[in-house]
Design a protein around this nucleic acid. Sequence first.
DNA 1: GTCTATAACGAGATAGAC
DNA 2: GTCTATCTCGTTATAGAC
Lengths: 182, 182
Amino acid sequence: MAESLAQTRGYNGFSYADISHVLGITKASLHYHFPTKEALGQALMERYAEEFRLALARIAETASSALEMVERYVALYRDVLVVGRLCLCGMFAAEVTTLPPGIQDRVRAFFDMNEQWLSDAFARGRHEGTLRIEQDAAEGARLFMGALEGAMLVARSYGQPQRFDADSRRLVALFLGAASRS
Amino acid sequence: MAESLAQTRGYNGFSYADISHVLGITKASLHYHFPTKEALGQALMERYAEEFRLALARIAETASSALEMVERYVALYRDVLVVGRLCLCGMFAAEVTTLPPGIQDRVRAFFDMNEQWLSDAFARGRHEGTLRIEQDAAEGARLFMGALEGAMLVARSYGQPQRFDADSRRLVALFLGAASRS
DNA sequence: GTCTATAACGAGATAGAC
DNA sequence: GTCTATCTCGTTATAGAC
């Protein structure tokens, strides 16, 4: 599928021919659905962001603590890493200078959404008394998201998801923890 | 220059033609110096890693504290970000599945070198009593390096190096700080 | 070492039949 | 919607003159 190829090889690393082989249809048929590669890239980003948005909403509704929210957030990333992919937006962010502007905008919008959600999670942690870090929740959210993207990037280049696990555990522990045992 | 193009657009985002235009020579002449793109990519990685190695050695020799080591390490990354580039290895890490194996190896070797150096810096911080984090220095080094790579990636997609500055300041503060004022 | 010229291939994209 | 056929362009790479 196109999404998988984009997350594995990047926007400049896959072609209409690659997708058509996997799907068993011709390039011309693909162009019927997505006239240009820009349109294809936009559709990919749109769907990816929408599914991620839904997943985050589900977590926010059902999680019983800020810690659980963040741990399940990390698991979303881990799930794509273990199958050899990167976050689609992390991948596109690396290639951003070569992307059509319409796709660049969507990359930033995805990051914005993630930062907002994490910011809410950390604010909840503060309310619960489990936030370990004194700082502004929004600023912490940026650091956290960037650190996760980087941890994925490096871990995948080694083919070792465990590297991501170690990093993400430490990272979560830095931000949130059990309430003080008083 | 080829290095700049690779750090800005990625391995799959530049061509012999791009470089030849910038250098004012023909593609054929470029092929005389670098017969294949794989050879060109390897040469790029080799030089980048060697210059980084020298820069790190200089810092380790002249820095007067672990905090200064790490701050100057962060400045190395910042310097490439402010001119719109990524760390060459961060970029290549995103494209790693599309790279010739000989280049993949060098990407990992670069990360290994960075982790080792940071690990030494944190060990020094522990010796000085400025290490804030209880953990294994090597594990902290991985988290730190990955977080910096990710912070660059995200900051550049916004065209805002200040994002990187905010993240890196927080990150450094998490790991190292002034000695307790006792 | 650098050039012109060209090969060989894959990319994104279109026309038009079915 | 999917196909065959084709186009145009950019890519890596080579041959051979200067």
